[in-house]
Amino acid sequence: MKHTPGWGLLKGLFETARNFVGSYYQPGRLTTIEYPDERLPVQENFRNFPMLIYDGADPERGLRCVGCKICEKECPPQCIYIVLERDRSGKVQKRPRLFDIDVSVCMSCQICVEVCPFDAIKMNTEYELSTGDRFGALLLRKAELAKPNEYYRRLHPTEAAEVDARLAAAAQAKAAAQAKEQAKLTAKPAKPAWSTQP
């Protein structure tokens, strides 16, 4: 192909002119938005930092977390810190007294969510977290992490529907097992198990 000097430059200038003019009316070329006034819609799968889910109205009682510390162990940057509740006699309870996530360390990898067997920790989509307080405000405590299940349903409707279905099925199975156990106990009230054997 014979190359006319200057033709390549002209072609390039034509291309930039096309983009320049096009950016006024072609939506595909309008790529920037005026951020604080306008916001892009958050995608459903978007994740930022973890949050704790509670059922019902009370964030203390309804918290799904049982303090099994799996997430604390599996968290790659070790940003989760859990201390379990103890009752008056010092017996360990199945719920956390402290649940801190240091979001200045957290890298939003979602591994805590994947390993949680109780669907208690999920990813929040809140992203405007900048603050002037370097240590205090970037350490999220249990009270700030706890979010109602409705909030989770609003953020991730598809995923939340799956989780709800799974939890409902598990609760049903548990109730059925309990009823069966109850029925067994009522059928054979006081007989110890070994006495039925020949």
Partner: peptide, 12 residues
């Protein structure tokens, strides 16, 4: 590793 330690708010 050397002990050039910075205190962080979530001590394990």
């Amino acid at each position: 590793e050397p002990d050039d330690y910075e205190y962080e708010p979530t001590p394990h």
